[in-house]
Simulated assay, not measured.
Amino acid sequence: MTQIVKSKIDQACRVAEEFTKLYYETSDKRRHLMSKLYLDSGLLAWNGNGVNGNERIQKFFIDLPTSDHIINTLDAQPVLDSAVNGQLTFMIQVSGTVRYQDRVPKSFQQNFIITAQGDKWKIVSDCFRLQEPLTNDKS
């Protein structure tokens, strides 16, 4: 592995830790600031519901019940320069548990693609899915 690739992987891991800490603190405690985390044209797929544009995404989050996220796993990797025209971009994968209001906590999986915009990281794409068992109902 070249030193450049190793450096980008190390950077992706550092950025993922900082970014996810900010993301989940904002989601759980400061939802009125969620739009600042997304590109103007950002895309959110939340349990199969698609929302695009940072202002619509913010309204979507404000309408959700209060939440408390706990991260169990975190992984990140750089996206190849050739795929993003050299724009510094990372893919982040998160799993954990989330409790909405006083409901039972549920497992979730979330994938982000974030890109550098000046000295800030912005979400290009965000895919969130609660992990619910498939039913074997064959009636």
Rank of each mutant, 00 (worst) to 15 (best):
V124L: 12
S27C: 09
N54Y: 05
Q77C: 13
S7Q: 13
F61I: 07
R99M: 06
W121H: 03
F90W: 01
T115P: 02
Q11P: 03
D63C: 12
D137Y: 11
D68L: 14
Q11A: 15
D75V: 07
G118Q: 01
T135E: 09
I113H: 05
K122Y: 03
L33S: 09
R99H: 03
D75F: 05
P65L: 04
Y100C: 10
N136F: 11
G53N: 04
N54C: 10
A16T: 04
T115Y: 02
F128C: 04
Y24G: 03
Q3V: 15
E55R: 15
D126F: 06
R30I: 03
M1C: 10
V15H: 00
P65R: 01
L43I: 14
I92E: 04
H32Q: 12
I9S: 02
T2V: 09
W121M: 08
K6S: 14
M34Q: 07
T97L: 06
G96T: 06
D119C: 08
Y100L: 15
L37C: 02
E25P: 01
P105V: 06
A16R: 00
Q58C: 07
E18F: 02
T135G: 10
R103M: 11
S107I: 06
K120T: 14
S67H: 02
S107Y: 06
F108T: 01
S95W: 04
P105H: 06
V98F: 01
A12H: 02
P78L: 09
K8E: 14
K21I: 07
S125E: 08
G42P: 00
P105Q: 04
L44C: 06
M1W: 04
T2R: 10
Q93N: 14
V79S: 03
I57P: 00
N47Y: 01
V104N: 09
Q58R: 07
G86Q: 09
Q77V: 08
G96R: 00
Q110E: 15
I9D: 00
T66N: 14
T26N: 03
F60K: 10
V51H: 03
D81I: 07
N52K: 13
D102W: 03
P133Q: 07
Q101L: 12
Y38E: 01
E55A: 12
T115S: 14
K138W: 07
K120W: 06
Y38I: 05
F108W: 01
E17T: 09
D81G: 08
